[in-house]
C-alpha cells in the first residue's frame, strides 16, 4: 500500500519533471473548454453553489486522462446540464449559448483526440498544434454558420421547431449511416 503510494508520488514527480510546454497547454485547453462548457450549460442556480466544484472536477478530468472515457462523460455531463437548464429551469435556448456550447464541446473533444496521441513529454513542432487548431476552427465556423441559419429558420417558423428538428435529425442520421457504411466498406 505504502509502496504503491510512494511509487505513484515518484511517478508524478517524474512526469512533472519531464513534461513539456505544448502538451501541457493542449491539456490545459481541454480543461478550459470543458469547464467553460459546463458553466455555460448548467443552470446558474447550481453553478453559483458549491456543486460547481464537482462540475469543475468533471471538466478537468478529461485533461488528466484524455485517453479514457472521461471525455465522453464530460460531454454527457454538459449535455445533461443543458437539457436540465432548458427543461427543468425553463431557460431560453439562446443563440450564443448554443454556439458557444457547440464550439467548446468540439474543441474539447478534438484537443482530447490530440492529447490522446501526444505524449506528455514530447518535443512538439508548433505546426502540429497550429494545424490541429486551424482544422478545429474551420469545423467550428461551418457549424456556427449552420447553427445561425437553423436557429433563424426555427424562429421564423415559430413553433415548427419540432418539425425542423425531426427533419434535420433524420437527414443527419441518414448521413451518419451512409458515412459509417462507407467506412466499413473501406476497411
Amino acid at each position: 500500500m505504502l509502496d504503491g503510494i510512494t511509487r505513484r508520488i515518484e511517478r508524478t514527480r517524474t512526469v512533472a519533471a519531464r513534461a513539456t510546454a505544448l502538451p501541457l497547454l493542449v491539456r490545459g485547453g481541454i480543461a478550459l473548454a470543458f469547464v467553460l462548457a459546463l458553466l455555460v450549460a448548467w443552470p446558474s442556480a447550481l453553478t453559483s453553489t458549491r456543486y460547481v466544484v464537482l462540475l469543475g472536477l468533471a471538466g478537468v478530468y478529461p485533461a488528466i486522462a484524455p485517453r479514457g472515457r472521461g471525455v465522453t462523460f464530460a460531454v454527457l455531463v454538459v449535455v445533461g446540464g443543458w437539457i436540465l437548464d432548458t427543461t427543468w429551469y425553463d431557460a431560453r435556448v439562446a443563440l450564443w449559448r448554443v454556439l458557444s456550447l457547440a464550439a467548446l464541446l468540439y474543441v474539447g473533444h478534438t484537443l482530447a483526440a490530440l492529447a490522446a496521441v501526444l505524449p506528455y513529454d514530447a518535443l512538439v513542432n508548433v505546426d502540429v498544434v497550429g494545424g490541429w487548431l486551424v482544422r478545429a476552427l474551420l469545423v467550428v465556423l461551418i457549424s456556427a454558420v449552420l447553427t445561425v441559419i437553423t436557429l433563424g429558420l426555427t424562429a421564423e417558423l415559430a413553433g415548427g421547431a419540432f418539425l425542423v428538428a425531426t427533419l434535420v435529425g433524420l437527414a443527419a442520421a441518414v448521413a451518419v449511416t451512409l458515412l459509417l457504411g462507407r467506412l466499413l466498406r473501406r476497411s
Binding site: 449535455v79 437539457i83 464550439a103 464541446l105 436557429l151 425542423v164 428538428a165 443527419a172
Partner: peptide, 10 residues
C-alpha cells in the same frame, strides 16, 4: 429539440 441536433453538428 433542434439545439441538440446543432450540438451534434460539429
Amino acid at each position: 429539440r433542434v439545439d441538440l441536433v446543432l450540438l451534434a453538428a460539429p
